[in-house]
Each structure stands twice: as C-alpha cells, then as structure tokens.
C-alpha cells in the first residue's frame, strides 16, 4: 500500500467538501419545484427546438429523428421524462435516468440532442411575483 501524502488528504478533503456543499445548496429549491406538476420539456436538436412536450402522468413515447438518420427515443411518464433508447456510440444519454425537475437535463452529445425541463405553472409564477413585490 502506498502512503498518502499530506497534500493528497487535503485535496481529497477539499473536493469532497465542494461536492457536499453543492449538493446541500441544491437540495433546497428543488423540493419546491417538485410540488408543481405542470411542466414542459423542450427538446432541442443542434440548437434548434425540435419539439416541446407536456410532462403528463400518462406514458407517451417521443422519437427524435436527427437529420443524418439517427434516433433518440424518449419516454414521458409520471410527470417526468427519460431517454430509453438511442443509436449513439457512447450511450451516455441513457445514464441520465428519469428526470423530473427543471435543474436536470438529458444530453446526447453525439447527436447534439438536449432535453430541458421548464416550469410553466402560472400559479408558481404568481407566487414568485408576490414575493418580489413584498
């Protein structure tokens, strides 16, 4: 076994601390946005909007066809969206899993496909406005 130097312990500590701080900061606003159930997902291919879809509870599948004949298969269910199949070489897009809140994204780098979630609940926006005015 090799010895850890003092710098190693310091570096590992700082990196872990950064990760934990990020996670803690993020944990707060996300819970609020999870309560509102009116969300839409915007699917972008190569910078151009391909389709927007409401994140319904009922399952529906969306096939994204890129210009050079490749595809990404998305599935909407339970107010969220996930990538279930793609013919890209690295399959990293499948590891994003099921996403439900606006800070999350699904990206397929080889096909330049980007899926973003936006909150569209008018009630939420009203609340935000009130908070600012007060």
């Amino acid at each position: 076994m090799m010895k850890l130097r003092r710098g190693d312990i310091l570096l590992i500590g700082i990196v872990l601390l950064c990760a934990i701080i990020f996670i803690i900061i993020r944990a707060f606003p996300n819970e609020v946005s999870d309560e509102s159930h009116s969300k839409i997902a915007t699917i972008t291919v190569d910078g151009k909007i391909y389709r927007t879809v409401e994140l319904t509870a009922e399952p529906q599948e969306i096939k994204v066809q890129t210009e050079d004949g490749h595809y990404n298969l998305l599935k909407v269910h339970d107010h969220g969206i996930e990538m279930i199949d793609a013919d890209c070489p690295d399959k990293v897009c499948l590891t994003f899993g099921f996403i439900t809140n606006p800070s999350q994204t699904i990206v397929c780098l080889p096909h330049r496909v980007l899926v973003e979630i936006e909150n569209t609940n008018p009630k939420d926006q009203g609340d935000d406005l009130d908070a600012v005015v007060n």
């Binding site: 990196v15 872990l16 990760a19 993020r26 990206v107 330049r112 980007l114 973003e116």
Partner: peptide, 23 residues
C-alpha cells in the same frame, strides 16, 4: 465543451456527482 456547444450551463448540475466518482 458541452456548455459552449449547447449554450446552457445546466449540465454543471451533474458536477457534484462527478466530483465524488472522480475521487
């Protein structure tokens, strides 16, 4: 690189998890 191409910084959402697996 993803941020430059997609023009969104949202991908950095996954950075904390990547820091942990990176260690």
């Amino acid at each position: 690189a993803a941020m430059i191409i997609f023009k969104t910084s949202k991908m950095f959402y996954y950075l904390p998890a990547l820091l942990l697996t990176g260690v």
